[in-house]
Simulated assay, not measured.
Amino acid sequence: MQHPETPARTGQWFTSSTSRQWWFDSGARTLDFAYTGAMGTNPEWERLHSPGDLAAWLEGRFNESDGAVSERDLTDARGLREAIASIASALSVNGSPDPQQVDVINLFAATADVPPRLAGGGMKAGRTTVRTGQALSTMAREAVFLFGEAQHERIRECAADDCALVFYDESRSNNRRWCSMQRCGNRAKVRSHRARNAAR
């Protein structure tokens, strides 16, 4: 089981406006969740069209997800997603989070999350599956950790002038600049190389 402060599997495939696929690792599961639609600049990035879509996404992030998602769960998930996206966007440009969105995250974080469990024991305490509400609460608690004073400076916007993707810099050196080295990082290298050649 994942604890809110324990790294989770992150990253997902996106398709550009030119139909080219590329991998974006936001650095945090809760930001990946925001990029299922709320933070996407491309309407085609919306992934949560139905309860089944949410179930599939959660199953890919929570190993023991029970796969049961209702329309109410989908509505709740979209509300949490919007709050995460709003605050991440504000922090990435050194802005102040909307207090109402902070309240949304705090409300979800106050509900029962996925309890941590130490492997190796002979007994299983409590449920062995993860309900949708627990998964949402766990991501809200991850957001509380990421957006708190100790970590929020690591919430960054891609340094490319034509990109506004937001990520959590989990690097030890705390110097990540690009949403993806294969996308904006590579384009920056190409531009720099051309500029050096032109200067010569």
Results as ranks from 00 to 15, higher is better:
S70N: 05
R131S: 13
F62T: 00
S89K: 06
I84K: 11
L80S: 03
N94V: 04
Y168W: 13
V144H: 04
V166G: 00
E149T: 02
A150G: 10
L146Y: 09
A143R: 03
G79I: 09
T132L: 15
N63P: 04
T128V: 10
K124I: 15
S92R: 09
P51D: 03
R61E: 08
D76V: 00
E82P: 00
D66I: 01
G79R: 13
V104M: 05
G79M: 11
P97M: 15
T132R: 05
S70G: 04
G52Q: 08
E64F: 11
T75S: 11
A112F: 06
G60L: 09
N106H: 12
Q151W: 14
A119W: 07
Q134H: 03
H152D: 09
G126N: 03
D162S: 13
L54P: 01
A109M: 12
E82A: 11
G67A: 09
S65T: 00
C163K: 06
V104A: 02
Q101S: 10
T128L: 14
V102M: 12
F108Q: 01
T129S: 13
V104R: 02
R61T: 02
A68V: 14
D103A: 11
Q151S: 11
A110S: 14
S65Y: 03
E59S: 07
S96H: 01
R78Y: 05
F145K: 04
G122P: 01
L91T: 02
A85H: 04
A112D: 12
A88T: 01
I84R: 10
P115T: 02
A68Y: 03
L74V: 06
T129K: 01
I155L: 15
A135H: 02
D53P: 11
D162E: 14
R131F: 00
G148V: 14
A77P: 07
A88Q: 00
L58Y: 02
R131V: 07
D98C: 04
P116G: 04
D98S: 04
D161A: 15
V144N: 08
G133N: 08
A109S: 09
A83E: 05
G148F: 15
E82Y: 06
V69A: 10
E82H: 05
R81L: 14
L165D: 00
P115H: 04
L54N: 01
M123R: 05
V102E: 05
L107V: 06
V130S: 07
R81Y: 11
D98L: 12
R117D: 02
N106G: 04
D103M: 11
D98T: 00
M139W: 14
V69F: 14
A56L: 10
G133H: 02
V144A: 09
I84H: 06
V130M: 13
E153Y: 04
T138K: 03
S89F: 07
T138S: 15
L54Q: 01
N94C: 10
T129F: 13
D113Y: 02
G52S: 07
N94D: 15
